[in-house]
């Protein structure tokens, strides 16, 4: 969203940020649809959801929560660093964020791999034998964490672009809209997880 300069306009950072917020709203509503489905089925099949949540490993969930929260802080710190003019520090914080994101994804991979080993994946026969509530729980689990993981990957890409932009000298103390917006996006990923984590892992 740094497209504000076409004609003779100066770059309008406020416009860029407002545009990003609006985009985040659409992301929020994209997940909102899934939260709505979750709410309806949870109300209908609370028992199945309890057993379903019991099958998930709360430990992995907690670790991933901590990882994402810390990464949220490092990306916020990267913005502080760029505002203070220390580009090197900013890059370091971004690298840290990216590493944390990778940890999150690796964790996720093991979690999913384990479930698939148990033949609990969408469309599997083992899943079809479960009672309805549990089946729906797992469908939601895959849909929600899958969409979330996709957003982690997009955020990751944005952060990597930020590093290159800082190195190329396009993002600096005077102009860091891209970094700021990527940061906002990354926080959104965190925000969604803040709700996903208790809803999927904890409510047993």
């Amino acid at each position: 969203m740094t497209n504000s300069s076409s004609h003779a306009h100066p770059v309008d950072n406020e416009a860029g940020k407002l545009g990003m917020w609006l985009f985040l709203f659409t992301e929020f509503f994209l997940f909102g649809g899934l939260f709505l489905v979750y709410a309806v089925f949870r109300a209908k099949f609370s028992d199945g959801f309890h057993t379903g949540a019991n099958d998930l490993n709360a430990m992995i969930g907690t670790i991933n929560t901590v990882v994402l929260l810390v990464s949220s802080m490092t990306v916020a710190m990267a913005i502080t660093a760029i505002q203070k003019g220390s580009n090197q520090k900013a890059i370091l914080f971004l690298v840290a964020t990216i590493l944390l994101a990778l940890v999150f994804m690796i964790n996720k991979y093991f979690e999913w791999a384990h479930k698939i080993e148990l033949h609990l994946f969408p469309g599997s026969e083992a899943l079809q034998t479960l009672e309805r509530g549990e089946l729906l729980f797992f469908s939601l689990y895959y849909m929600m964490t899958g969409l979330h993981a996709l957003h982690v990957i997009i955020g990751l890409t944005l952060l990597i672009i930020c590093i290159f932009q800082i190195k190329a000298g396009n993002t600096h103390k005077g102009q860091y809209l891209l970094l700021e917006n990527s940061g906002l996006y990354w926080h959104l990923v965190d925000l969604i997880w803040i709700f996903l984590f208790p809803l999927l892992y904890l409510l047993t």
Binding site: M73, A76, F197
Partner: peptide
């Protein structure tokens, strides 16, 4: 969770 979300929104 909402309190956490508010904190992230407000400061981060």
């Amino acid at each position: 969770a909402s309190v956490k979300a508010t904190i992230v929104l407000t400061w981060f």
